[in-house]
Every structure is written in structure tokens, then in C-alpha cells.
Design a protein around this nucleic acid. Structure first.
Lengths: 210, 210
DNA sequence: GGGGAGATGTGAATAATATCACATACTTAG
DNA sequence: CTAAGTATGTGATATTATTCACATCTCCCC
């Protein structure tokens, strides 16, 4: 599926295109031009065509893209035509809220494990039926339940240690909500979600104009 | 403070440098070289020096950067040496968790208003003392409490309408957690936080190597 | 079935971003 | 006071990413 060095930015945009296309599908739109899609996503039309061109030809000249097909093709490109199992580590405010959040399941991501260091929480059942395990059991449980991606929602202090354990358990993908830069071996891919950094960008723009 | 066209990526990195530097301060490190900081942040040392060079000279040749000073200078650059008032819109799982999350206050962001469309929730008091207002009151309350940044944590369907109201109320910065691309006038700066997009990137990496 | 309208796919041009490499300046030791 | 050792700041270079512009293909209508 992957033919050349693909810019990371392209991958991110493909996700965004897909989201927008899925929206359009629900409004019964069947075909769209790169120009209209570009406007809706806030990018340049040529950008969309280039991004897709890395992976093949998906449109029809003179017509545009059949949305249903394109969504499926983007899913193939991103590896989303299969289920992905998630483990949540840290069930404080944020972790609990995320695990209840409907967007994961909507996009094919399933929580198959949940961990916390607080023995008070261990054994409790979450709304989705999962029972919280102690972080000590992380390695075993992760392997047993075939977790693919670990989500870190612990305090910053615990994040690195959790990351180490996840790597030990054979995890190669981590989504990190802790506000710290975690260090992992090259085999493991980390994506950070840090909203205070986003707020800093907003503060900068508000302070010094766009 | 702003001298030239500054790359957005530079602004984001400055936030990251600042976070790391603040960590180091707590460990009583006083001075750091661009090389060590770079390693810790996962970037190139020259990158750090270039990023800072947009705004002035902050280091000492042959020595490095005095961390305490540099943190303050980055705060000046980003406009963080002042309080910023936030309004949360949407107090479902995610919104409630965020408003309880300690990281905002730690970095100088204060919630001064909270809104929900559910009349059941209106009037309730949050852990931080705030009382939930109905979204109908958004414009008035936002102006009265001098809100600078609106945070959207509503379902995707409501996000655009909330954004419109925020703009009407004079808000120029929005942090959007709803998984949808919201449209706003140019005067308003939007940052999106969409973790399923991050998960998609991870899925891609796991599927097709790094 | 031929011609016009419209939208893709893509090489070339442009713009933006990151890295290198070294001159410059500061500190310390002798 | 001088020389050695370091680490910054920055012009030059390399790399990467975006946009343009147009040839190519499809559809539709006459």
C-alpha cells in the first residue's frame, strides 16, 4: 500500500478528508470534487489530489470522487479496515471521560483493557463492561487481550514509567495525553495530545495578531 | 515582540521547549545547552537556536541558556505572562473532565464560565466553584466575564452553532474538541484537538512500518 | 459520434522549513 | 593575559512541502 516516503502531514490530512467525507455521506452526497472538499477542509484542491496521488488514482476525471469509494480507499491506505484494540492507562477524570467517549468506537477503536495504579479502582466495572486492572498486570493483560495501542492518561510523573511498561509488553503505538515528552525506542510510535500547547498557540495569536 | 513571519511550527515548539524547561527547573537544573534540550524534546539543536533567533538572543555563547530566564522569555514571546480566561461549552464527560483537569490552571488558564444546553445541568456548581449557565446566555456571560478563549466540547452536531455564538460574543480564539471542521471568520483562530485523527496516524504506522 | 464543459493527475515552479557548518563570543585554567 | 574548550547565532545549503498550470480523460448534449 505504501509506495514512497509519505509525508506525515499527508497522513493527517487523509484522516481529515475521511471525516469530512463521512459527514457528507450522511447527508447523502455521493460525489464531490477536490475543489469542494478542499473548501470544506480548509486546504488547497491540488493538495488533496497530490495527497491521494501518493497512493493511486481514486477519482474520475471530469466528475470528481465517489465519496463512498474514496472513504473505503482512505481506510485501506491508513489501515483502518480492521479493528484496533486500545488499552487505557490511568482512569482519573480524563481517562474515564475518554473511555466513555463515543468517538473511538465510532471509528473502529475498541477498548479491551483499562489500568490504574489506585487499588481502590482496581476491580471496578466501567460503563462499557471493562473491569479495571492494576498496572502491575499490564504486561500480561496487554498480551492476552491483544492490545495494539496504549493510551496514557496518567499524571505526568507516571507517564514515562507507563510508557516503558507498554513497550515491554510489545506495544508499538502510544497515544499520550500526559503533558510530558516520553522517550521510547524507534519501533514505537508516539502521538501526543497536549491541549495546553494548543492553548499557547491561541494565546500567541490573540496577543500578536494572526 | 513579533518581528517577522514566524512559522506556526516554531510557536508550537516554543511551547514544548517551555514545558521541558519547566520540568528541568523543578529538578533544579539552572543552565542547559541547545544540544541537551534538543535531545530531550526530540528535535535538532540548530532548530532550537533558529526558533529562538526569530525573537532575539537569549543564550550565552560557550555556556548555554539560563533556564529560568528562558522560560520567562518564551512566556513573553507567546503572550503567557498574563492570565487568560476560558469558557467551557458542553459539560458532558469530556467537558467536565477537562474543567477538573489541573493542567489549565497550572499554565495560567482560568475557567470563568461554563455552558451547557441541558437545562438539567444549568445552575449546578462545578468543583471549581463555577455555576453552569445555559448556552442561551453565552453572549452576555462571555462579555461580562471577559472570556478570551472558548473551548468547544459539545457533540459534533452542535459545534458549528456554538462556534457562531462564540464569534458573535467577540471571541477570537477557540479550542475545538468536537470532531468536525468548524468554519469561522479570519479574525478567529481555531485549534482542533481530535484524538481519533492521532489514532489514525498510529494505525497507519503500525500497519505500514514507520 | 463529435465537441464542449468540467475535473482529475502530475511535472515543474515556488515556497517553506530544517540542517549544516563555522565565525563569534564567553568561561575557565594556568 | 592568553590559550583551550564550549556552545551560541546565523548565512548558506539541503530538504521537504505546497501550489500552479495544463495535458488528459470522462460525461453529456446535440
Amino acid at each position: 500500500m505504501k509506495f514512497a516516503k509519505i509525508p506525515m502531514a499527508t497522513i493527517v490530512r487523509l484522516s481529515i478528508y475521511m471525516r469530512t467525507l463521512q459527514e457528507l455521506l450522511e447527508e447523502d452526497v455521493e460525489v464531490i470534487s477536490s475543489e469542494r472538499l478542499a473548501k470544506q477542509c480548509g486546504v488547497n484542491p491540488a493538495q488533496i489530489r497530490k495527497d491521494l496521488a501518493y497512493f493511486g488514482e481514486f477519482g474520475v476525471r471530469g466528475v470528481g470522487y465517489r465519496i463512498n469509494d474514496l472513504v473505503n480507499q482512505i481506510k485501506d491506505i491508513l489501515g483502518l479496515n480492521r479493528p484496533w484494540n486500545l488499552a487505557m492507562v490511568g482512569l482519573g477524570n480524563l481517562g474515564s471521560a475518554l473511555i466513555r467517549h463515543g468517538n473511538f468506537i465510532k471509528h473502529g477503536y475498541v477498548f479491551t483493557a483499562a489500568f490504574d495504579a489506585d487499588v481502590q479502582k482496581v476491580g471496578k466495572r466501567l460503563p462499557n463492561g471493562l473491569i479495571i486492572n492494576h498496572v502491575n498486570e499490564l504486561e500480561d493483560v496487554v498480551k492476552e487481550r491483544e492490545v495494539h495501542v496504549g493510551i496514557i492518561a496518567t499524571p505526568a510523573n507516571d507517564a514515562q514509567s507507563v510508557a516503558n511498561q507498554l513497550v515491554l509488553a510489545g506495544i508499538n503505538g502510544i497515544l499520550n495525553f500526559a503533558p510530558i515528552q516520553i522517550q521510547v525506542p524507534d519501533c514505537c510510535h508516539v502521538e501526543n495530545v497536549d491541549f495546553t500547547i494548543k492553548l499557547d498557540s491561541i494565546a500567541y495569536h490573540l496577543s500578536f495578531g494572526s
